[in-house]
Design a protein around this nucleic acid. Structure first.
Length: 271
DNA sequence: CTCTTAACCTGGACGC
DNA sequence: TGCGTCCAGGTTAAGA
């Protein structure tokens, strides 16, 4: 489900929830694991704790209490929603943060690719791959991107989705960013010019910021904890639009699997 | 070392 | 209605 904009929206929404209901009664899990075993011992320490803040790095969330913190990843289908006192849990509800007023914040994840782990100290320890720069920060620059691309054997779309290079960009936004930049997803990294790097960097920031503003993309099932669906899917120009006219030139949008992921582009607007 | 593929899971859409 | 196949926003171990 979630790329950077969706995770950012979830983060903001969780912070709203925890601002109103900072005091936890307990954490309950309804199974023993997701992608990794739940840190059950650690959960026991969260009884009666106050939740201070939620942060985001890459597609990871960090939930911080007074004396501990948890890192959560939503995988493909993870989501949170608020459960009122009278409501009962649903299929694929795997864990809940239970508040002292009887309501709960429930984590639901049909495919169970998500996880909760104890905060290990540094972000790089969360991902064995090692995390690249944040796309919305200054250090994601045209110079940085050009340097990273110049000795790579892969194509540009694969590079944009490589979390070691830049974090947070997934399959939807990679296609969208490359369309906005006029660069074909199949272009070899070494053949992307400095000028095109500039465009890709600028459009990454623009597309991701616009998507955050619109609450993320809600295709299939994404929604934030306040139950609001995002609307950025209405702004998708190529993703999921195979055979539909390009908004610029009316050429039919192409689709092809690149690096194992479905990719979309306009063969006339993108070189 | 770099790069690609398969696997982890469930559910929804589609074809027969 | 049912059953088989394919596909889905991510990550990463294993293979080439």
């Amino acid at each position: 489900m979630p790329e950077l904009p969706e995770v950012e929206v979830v983060k903001n929404s969780l912070n709203e929830v925890f601002k109103t209901k900072p005091c936890l009664e307990k954490i309950t899990c309804y199974r023993k694991d997701l992608r990794f075993p739940f840190p059950v011992k650690e959960f026991a320490n969260w009884k009666q704790q106050k939740i201070l803040q939620v942060e985001r790095r890459a597609k990871y969330l960090r939930i911080i209490s007074a004396n501990s913190s948890l890192v959560c990843h939503l995988g493909m289908t993870g989501s949170f929603r608020l459960l009122e006192k009278s409501e009962t849990k649903q299929a694929h509800d795997h864990l809940s943060f239970d508040f002292q007023d009887g309501t709960s914040l429930v984590y639901n994840d049909p495919r169970r690719f998500g996880f909760f782990i104890v905060w290990p100290g540094s972000w790089d320890q969360v991902s064995s791959a090692g995390l690249g720069v944040e796309p919305l920060e200054k250090d994601f620059s045209a110079e940085y991107l050009f340097q990273k691309l110049k000795d790579r054997g892969t194509v540009i779309k694969t590079a944009l989705m490589d979390q070691k290079l830049v974090v947070g960009i997934g399959n939807i936004y990679a296609s969208e960013i490359l369309f906005h930049s006029g660069v074909r997803p199949t272009r070899k990294c070494q053949r992307v010019s400095p000028e095109e790097c500039q465009k890709i960097v600028q459009n990454s920031k623009k597309v991701l910021r616009d998507a955050i503003k619109k609450g993320g993309s809600s295709i299939r099932d994404f929604e934030s904890p306040d139950q609001k669906a995002g609307s950025y899917q209405d702004s998708h120009l190529v993703y999921g639009r195979e055979g539909i006219a390009c908004p610029n030139c009316k050429t039919k949008i192409k689709q092809k699997v690149i690096g194992g992921r479905s990719s979309f582009w306009c063969s006339s607007c993108q070189d």
